[in-house]
Design a protein around this nucleic acid. Structure first.
Lengths: 206, 206, 206, 206
DNA sequence: TATGAATGAGACTTCATTCAT
DNA sequence: AATGAATGAAGTCTCATTCAT
């Protein structure tokens, strides 16, 4: 019985590990090649398994992409989560800087979510997961703006919803610009510029 | 003589008309479905020709995309070109507003360039044309910033190159955000927000 | 246990059988139509499978051709291999006669290698495999000539390398001639003629 | 009237020149790439004309190939024709040597007929023209053998028809071997070897 | 749990041929 | 006589998916 339990746990663990490795492989490949050029066989093999495993785990490619968006989100959240500041403005600035920095530190996985976002611009099937994600991020920004308005760090005249929309656009767009053309501007200089940009507006009418 | 002129032009005209119709069809389809899901056969047929004509004209799909980027640029430039303001800041604001507005007025062709831009994020073959285009646009922005610094409408402390980078990111990102989620914010409200955002920064230290 | 053995072998066996059937189908079709007119879909279907299987197995058409050359060689070698004579001259004569006879006995597969050889004359991609094969065959001939010179059946004045070159040319050329025009000469008469031709030269200065 | 005649002749001359240039271009391209990979458009353009001209002149590709075989034959005959020897054996030897030499002197056109011959090995449409040509050449050889038997230079025991068959095979085969692998043997050495080979047999029983 | 053989749809591309100029 | 726009068939190759092991 003990043995059976162990076996069962091992099976589950093996499954989880395989799934994680498949997702990581998928992130790498999609960041490199885009969604369509990345085949399920490639993913399985990059993960160290067989061609067939992706279908076995995720059933279809669309399901994999959907699952991938969630996975990416968690991954990103984990990398951005340690915000130490305690007033709203600083929290926004820190989060923004962390977001940009994500694309400036080496590592293949980073651009994956951005690539998925870019791929969602035409009316494709995988669009919905990205849209939901965007909404959540705008809400996160809006909450921090309201927080800042309560603690006095952000002017009351700022329209939280509208600014959140613009801010997310700015960050996504600048990140994309950087991915496309990393040599056009210094990494640090870019982060400062974005920071000043945001601060100039939010602190403006205080 | 009239006849001869007509005759001489007709072959060339046929070719030109076909090319234009193919490009327009390609823009429509790519805006709807993205690059990869759009087949050359679809383009030919949507344009009212045969499945094979696209290859006859453009040789390869990559060549078509490259040509399409140029075509889009001209198309966009024509729509944005009438900037009436005479100082640098106002010129930038007008151009920015026109750019956002482009995605807010109906018409299938509009999102094409944005879709191409999003599709260039992974390392695909068509990437280069987009990168070149981005560079040109940043240069256009930087020139207007310098102009504004000469005519006094923009603070001398602004780093033209860095701000151009951020500005193009902002506009692209906001446009993408809007294409993905047009109902999250009012069209006019968004344009005002972007305008305030830019003005707050550029006029900041005057 | 028996069952386990069976199970273990079956996947591999399925693959091997498919590969053999595909190669045989390819040999038939190429002998009939030549390389270029033979499509991969035709091969798959003649073998009793789907249109796509050839690509699944051999990846590309060039790879199939390369594999086919090896396969043909083994096939031919098996048909020619029983040379009983023990002196060099007789061994050469027997091998030569067996080679010609190969094209004189019915059976679709026989001309395949000859067709591949003919198709390699222009600078095509599949050329290399044939060239390597030719070299090996000339070496085989040269070895037997040297053997004959040691056992006294072939004159020492014969230049092994040069004669091997001419001999292989003779056999290939006569076989091709026969395939093109089987009614121009009796099968037996042709074999005798070639035999006399070779013997006249090799035994010449004894 | 004179003028009209002139014009007519000029038209005819232009037509002839175009046809010749098309045929030469076709010979070059087929020697390089084989029949199937050579497109009619390529031929037209290599000849300095338009893509459409080949169809205008020859109607179909098959007709071009057929015409090409005749043209090649004339071309080859012109290069081989000056045989000065006056006894049958020497005439055969000279012709044989000239044939081999044809493939040993630089110039793209040479291998064309050989390529066409190789391409005729499977049962294709263009086969017949080649078969007819082969027959004519065997007859030419047989005539010279009989001539040699009359003038005493060739043994009466030789079977003219059978030997002609073998000889043509030898020459074709050796030429093909040389085209495939020119570095395996010296050009002069090869011609000597073939000459000795033939002489050994024909002079054998004198 | 995992593998990989097999399928079949669909894409890009080439090209002989037709036809308007 | 000559051009080249346009067609449509055919071929190679990729790949998501199914299924037997």
């Amino acid at each position: 019985m003990q043995k059976k339990l162990d076996t069962r746990r091992t099976q589950q663990e093996r499954r989880d590990e395989a799934e994680t490795r498949l997702l990581v492989a998928a992130m790498e490949l999609i960041a490199e090649q885009g969604i369509v050029k990345t085949s399920l066989a490639q993913i399985g093999e990059r993960a160290g398994y067989s061609r067939g495993l992706v279908n076995y785990h995720f059933r279809t490619k669309d399901a994999l992409i959907e699952r991938l968006v969630e996975h990416c989100q968690q991954y990103y959240r984990a990398e951005i989560s340690d915000i130490s500041a305690d007033n709203g403005l600083e929290r926004l600035l820190e989060a923004s800087e962390a977001y940009i920095r994500l694309y400036q530190t080496p590592g293949k996985l980073k651009p994956t979510l951005l690539v998925l976002w870019g791929a969602a611009l035409p009316r494709t099937a995988d669009r919905d997961a990205i849209i939901v994600l965007e909404k959540r991020i705008r809400e996160f920004a809006a909450e921090n703006i309201k927080l800042g308005q309560q603690d006095g760090s952000i002017a009351r005249t700022v329209d939280a919803k509208a600014f959140a929309f613009a801010l997310v656009g700015l960050l996504r767009g600048v990140a994309a610009e950087y991915v496309l053309n990393p040599d056009a501007i210094g990494a640090k200089r870019l982060r400062e510029e974005v920071r000043s940009f945001i601060r100039a507006y939010l602190g403006n009418t205080t």
